[in-house]
Amino acid sequence: MLRIRRFEERCVELYSATKIRGFLHLYIGEEAVAAGVMAALEPADAVVSTYREHGHALARGVPMDAIMAEMYGKATGCSRGRGGSMHLFDRATNFHGGSAIVGGGLPLAVGLALADRMAGRSRVTACFFGDGAVAEGEFHECLNLAALWHLPVLFLCENNLYAMGTRIDRAQANTDLAARAATYGMTAHAVDGMDALEVEKAARRAAAAVRATGSPYFLELRTYRFRAHSMYDPDRYRDKAEIARWQQRDPIDTLARRMISDGELDEPGLAQLNADVEAEVAASVTAAEQAPVEPVDQLTRFVYADNEGLP
């Protein structure tokens, strides 16, 4: 969680310095979800993510250097500079990307799970999406299909109460998202997404159920983003007091306090963790600064699989 937090704080600075461009959606405040879920997944499992995916990618094990280089649009980035913040991909960790079409990742996840089923592979496809995606038709089509065909998808709805500036009760007639998912015929429940240990416990149980039954499972992770929707968003639609209230439940502080009181961590240990993370972030920035850009003559590469650039 610290790695995600410090990484993104640095990204904000780099954005202001115009080193990073495009849309930048921060995960700050929601780290417990990524940390808890990824701890419950196996390396062979697949992950399908959104445009708010730095945290997912880091917690999944995509190297920070490769992510930072991608933010810079460099050739060493995890998407070779083509993707940027919203489109992080990494085959080595089965990280199937960052999609920036709301709801667009769900059909992919259903398809990955279908392929696993047909090939006789037993693994979980973890599919992240926001509360906003629940309003899209694709969400409903995909839950139905996954339930109908008994496909091993772990649906992970990050309910941070807002879709851009639209609060959930202004978009959803029934805001109990887990209850709605359950009507499609899968186990579904809500979890405190601000508590990494709670998330991990629930995700382990859910992933085990998907593995055991080969059928879908739905977790609604109740969380909150501390920052605006993106760097373009002046955040006019939220009450400052509401943000402050949620900040008191900062998932990093919560875990650190718990670990200290349990004797698993002490103050010097925490300081050391912080220093290590700062160093990792700093190194990723240095590497990204020095990394080469993709030569322009490579522009048309990766459009077709069997050629290195049709005209």
């Binding site: 991608e70 998407s79 940027g84 322009v296 522009l299 459009v303 005209p311």
Partner: peptide, 16 residues
């Protein structure tokens, strides 16, 4: 525009 999905990196996008 070049026949590629639009790339992120500024120099590649401008080239496209």
């Amino acid at each position: 525009s070049a026949e590629v999905p639009m790339p992120y990196a500024a120099h590649l996008e401008q080239a496209a």
